[in-house]
């Protein structure tokens, strides 16, 4: 465990807690894409299949349970909670899951480290995580403006994977044979996808104006 990895995990944890807290306190999910949240629940489910078979550390298991629990709670809130669900904008959040799920599944079947069910599922979760934010970014562009908490949520989500890239670079230089190009490529694609959002987020923050994403 290095500082980049810990910072990345804490940033990731903070992003899901910010979102869960926002939905829980103001009982609203305005501006939040349910599609993205469902994709994240799928990412964690397919990524953590080994949660009960391979014990790595208490920290690892606890964090996996938190990510699984928070992502499914957020989906539950938006789908089932009698007050929160009213603020869900289903007419705007129309991105089709299968446009992302199917290509990632096909890619994972053909490009993976080992052709076993768990390994293909794990690789699928990497590819899917890289693109899971797209429905959320599309929704932000459609709704034209974005409240601070949602902006912070997306920013933290992007920052966590950028920190993981630093962690991979660090491990590459400190651990022998640490080569995982699939993880690296998926992680870089994911961070680049956020890059344009980062650009507009910083612009709005610097000019102290509401964030407007270009159409």
């Amino acid at each position: 465990m290095n500082i980049f990895r810990l910072a990345g995990d804490m940033t990731h944890l903070f992003s899901v807690l910010v979102l869960l807290l926002k939905i829980h306190t103001i009982k609203s999910c305005a501006g939040i894409s349910l599609k993205t949240q469902e994709l994240y629940a799928l990412v964690f489910t397919t990524r953590y299949l080994d949660i009960f078979t391979d014990f790595i550390s208490l920290y690892n298991t606890v964090m996996k349970l938190i990510f699984l629990g928070s992502s499914f709670s957020i989906v539950w809130y938006i789908r089932r909670h009698k007050i929160v669900r009213r603020s869900y904008d289903k007419d705007q959040d129309t991105f089709r899951h299968y446009f992302l799920v199917i290509p990632c599944l096909v890619l994972a079947v053909f490009i993976n480290h080992k052709f076993t069910f768990k390994e293909v599922m794990w690789t699928f979760s990497l590819y899917l995580e890289a693109v899971a934010i797209l429905p959320q970014l599309v929704l932000l562009q459609r709704t034209r403006n974005i409240d601070n908490l949602t902006g912070q949520y997306v920013f933290l989500l992007g920052a966590y994977r950028a920190l993981y890239i630093l962690n991979w670079i660090y491990r590459h230089f400190t651990e022998p044979h640490y080569v995982h190009w699939i993880t690296w490529i998926a992680g870089v694609v994911q961070t680049l996808l956020y890059a344009d959002f980062f650009y507009y987020y910083f612009q709005s923050w610097k000019n102290n104006e509401k964030l407007q994403l270009p159409a």
Partner: peptide, 10 residues
């Protein structure tokens, strides 16, 4: 295998 070491990440 080296792949194991990556599974220690989240």
């Amino acid at each position: 295998s080296s792949n194991k070491d990556l599974k220690d990440e989240l």
